[in-house]
Design a protein around this nucleic acid. Structure first.
Length: 475
DNA sequence: TAGCTCGTTGGACAA
DNA sequence: TTTGTCCAACGAGCT
């Protein structure tokens, strides 16, 4: 192939199907050099997400090999890495799928301008979102701040069709050097006593597609009725694949639409809404990027949150030792599996921000460190919604009672038993895995006594209500 | 324009 | 046991 090659810069799109940038690169008539850059200035991932990213890269690398190609790994500032690789390979074009967080947008915009100024062809493509920012506006040209109008405006829109994976990826005459993935040590930051996470993770595009198929064949029909029960296998489990693009939201959208037409009505509709919640989070992040770091409603800026992550009760929260069974089960599920059921996320966030009057940012940072499905837009929106500082009219007196939640959504105690070993004669494996996972320095053992509550639920609720009342009357 | 309706996810209590 | 009502009241988005 005489043409100069194209670089396919992969980021949060670790798949081969439904990948417009890959499709365009393969159709360009050029040889394609797939590249992943570990850009430490932008890849500010927490420990679990970084480990999970490594799993995704490994899986994608194998899939690319099967297409007659190689995934090149390089580390450094993306602009520098690209410049060097272009010099090494004589590449004349760079393709990538667009990202939407402020840091990546700034970086990518500068790189695009620079490459174009140097005469290179740059192709940027959608792929991570169903509806890109700018495609969705209110009637007056603004952006949506409330989910339901957003949902109504997108629910009947056309979504890009699916694109099959290329049969093969055209290879260059010679390959540039690549780092070894193992040398990146992406799991090094996991402060874990043992490697428990792999027992709960299936990485890669093939695994994600299989998971979707399983969900479509079963749980989707009862999704609306069952999804709130954290001990039941009622959800798709696709969040971590979606977070690094092992599956395209388009694939999920079309599959769910198909299921809806075939009679999985309410379940499919509710599931589609969840997918659109992710879109809405990105919509908010693009229009109000401060949602990632500061109170979305600035009238909360002077609220006297506890901001001490070393507060003993906050530490008890992170370690699943608050003495509130539903909260502790959820926090241990997070630590062991890298994920947490959605309802449990709301309950633990409400508990931290209200019963413990602790800043949502502290909770979000712990989630960032522990989640394998970490997504900045969804997490910032979720935490601010729970805290009451976000774009939602949730009244301050809405405080989840974790005991009421447990009685309603875990009536048989299956969720708590699955994750809290203390007091059980024969704890299940997951509950025991927690004690393998935690660092020795935490000094925890299954034979420990289960702790007394760090704060009474009624007392915590009253304290939160009083704090809000006092804050409102002062401001 | 001004008015109207509604807002993912709740809790406590009364009847 | 289940169902209804109130909590307090703003602002988004539509007509």
């Amino acid at each position: 192939m005489g043409e100069r090659p194209a670089i396919l810069w992969l980021r949060r799109d670790l798949r081969l199907a439904d990948h417009p940038a890959l499709t365009a690169a393969c159709a360009s008539g050029r040889a394609v050099i797939p590249l992943f850059i570990l850009d430490d200035q932008v890849e500010t991932l927490g420990a679990a997400a970084k480990w999970r990213l490594g799993q995704g890269i490994s899986s994608l690398s194998q899939a690319i090999e099967e297409k007659g190609s190689h995934l090149i790994l390089r580390r450094g500032a993306a602009a520098d890495v690209l410049t060097r690789l272009i010099a090494e390979t004589g590449a004349a074009a760079v393709y990538w799928s667009r990202l939407y967080d402020p840091a990546a947008r700034a970086r990518d915009g500068a790189i695009e301008a620079d490459l174009k100024a140097r005469g290179l062809e740059v192709g940027t493509f959608p792929g991570a979102l169903l509806f890109e920012p700018g495609m969705v506006q209110t009637g007056t040209g603004g952006f949506y701040r409330v989910f339901t109008p957003y949902w109504k405006s997108v629910r009947d829109r056309r979504v890009d069709p699916l694109v099959p994976a290329p049969a093969r990826i055209p290879a260059p005459a010679s390959w540039p050097a690549s780092d070894r993935l193992d040398d990146w040590a992406l799991g090094a930051a996991l402060r874990r006593g043992a490697a428990v996470l792999p027992r709960y993770t299936e990485a890669g595009e093939a695994a994600a597609l299989a998971r979707l198929d399983v969900f479509l064949a079963g749980a989707i029909a009862d999704y609306q009725a069952e999804r709130d029960y954290p001990a039941r296998a009622a959800t798709s489990g696709l969040s971590e694949a979606l977070a690094i693009g092992e599956i395209a939201p388009h694939r999920i959208w079309h599959a769910a639409q198909h299921a809806r037409e075939r009679g999985a009505g309410d379940g499919a509709e509710t599931f589609l809404k969840e997918l659109v919640w992710r879109e809405f989070a990105y919509h908010l992040m693009v229009h109000t990027p401060h949602i990632l770091t500061r109170n979305w409603r600035e009238e909360w800026d002077s609220f006297p949150w506890n901001e001490d992550a070393q507060d003993l009760r906050v530490i008890a929260w992170t370690r699943g030792r608050t003495g509130v069974p539903f909260v502790d089960a959820a926090m241990r599920e997070l630590y062991v599996t890298g994920r947490m059921h959605n309802r449990a996320r709301m309950v633990v966030a409400s508990y931290l921000t209200k019963h413990l009057l602790t800043h949502w940012r502290i909770g979000m940072e712990w989630f960032a460190d522990c989640l394998t499905d970490w997504d900045p837009a969804s997490n910032a929106m979720g935490w601010q919604w729970c805290a009451g500082s976000g774009p939602d009219a949730a009244p301050y007196f809405r405080i989840f009672n974790p005991e009421t939640q447990r009685k309603t959504y875990d009536p048989q105690g299956a969720y708590v038993q699955a994750w809290v070993a203390e007091g059980q004669r024969n704890p299940p494996q997951g509950a025991l895995d927690y004690f393998d996972a935690v660092p020795l320095s935490w000094r925890l053992a299954p034979s420990d006594l289960y702790p007394a509550p760090v704060v009474g639920l009624a007392e915590g609720r009253q304290r939160a209500l009083a704090a809000y009342e006092s804050y409102r009357s002062e401001s």
